[in-house]
């Protein structure tokens, strides 16, 4: 019987985060999750914190509570994210701040706090969330793509900083997956986006899980600083 992994996933109340949490629980793992909303998942191996991922004291407390409860964290999956769809000239400063706070600052804070516990154990896996909107330079998604470009750069530099400590840091860049994140995007816009992929279909939660599991696999200990895009999109 395999030893359960302790996995911290952000943004677990819905969409990809919820799907990831359900997947790892089904594998027998222990999942600590968080979201702004209350938990939507009940399981004996699941614990939940309601927080804003850009709230530093809340993130520090949540990570240390998880370590107190489980002794360590094997993997961090920084899934929490928000998207806006608007022409740059019609975007507000508040929208820019909010999207960077959640997508970049939230990722940074969780990486920093969880990595502190991982370097103590000289072991750990971090998976951040990028997007195909960045390499595709999608019109109307300048703020979202830019915030995720920051996540990519951070992932690649952090991988170098944590490599000597036995911690890998990678990112998965999903195509649109039919979740709440993309539900307000017009169909014509979505079709145009899919047409730019090598494989022209929506992604599924299973497609994302596959890449995350690849990064978490024991055999992937020599893989770090990588961004894998789905659907045949190139960086």
């Amino acid at each position: 019987m395999k030893t359960p992994r302790v996995i911290f996933i952000t943004g677990t109340s819905r969409g990809l985060g919820l799907g990831l949490a359900e997947h790892f629980l089904a594998q027998g793992d222990i999942v600590a999750g968080c979201s702004r909303a209350p938990a939507t998942l009940t399981h004996e191996r699941y614990s939940h914190c309601s927080l804003d991922v850009s709230d530093e004291p809340a993130v520090v407390a949540a990570v240390r509570a998880a370590v107190r409860q489980h002794g360590h964290i094997d993997a961090l999956i920084n899934n929490a994210g928000i998207a806006t769809m608007n022409h740059a000239l019609l975007s507000t400063a508040a929208a820019a701040q909010q999207i960077f706070a959640t997508n970049f600052h939230g990722t940074f804070l969780f990486c920093r706090e969880v990595a502190k516990t991982m370097v103590r154990r000289k072991s750990g896996r971090i998976v951040n969330f990028a997007t195909v909107a960045t390499p595709l330079r999608l019109e109307g998604e300048s703020l979202y793509a830019a915030s995720k470009a920051a996540v990519e750069s951070f992932t690649q530099v952090l991988a170098r900083e944590l490599g000597p400590a036995g911690v890998t840091v990678n990112a998965v860049g999903p195509t649109p997956v039919p979740t709440d994140l993309v539900k307000n995007v017009p169909r014509a816009k979505m079709d145009a986006l899919l047409a730019r992929q090598a494989i022209q279909r929506f992604g599924t939660i299973s497609d994302v899980i596959n890449v995350v599991e690849f990064f978490l696999a024991p055999q992937s200990e020599f893989i770090t600083g990588q961004v894998i895009y789905l659907g045949g999109v190139s960086g």
């Binding site: 370590v67 502190k116 516990t117 370097v119 103590r120 400590a165």
Partner: peptide, 9 residues
Amino acid sequence: VNFLADLEY
């Protein structure tokens, strides 16, 4: 980095 992480803990 290791020292500060240990000390915070």
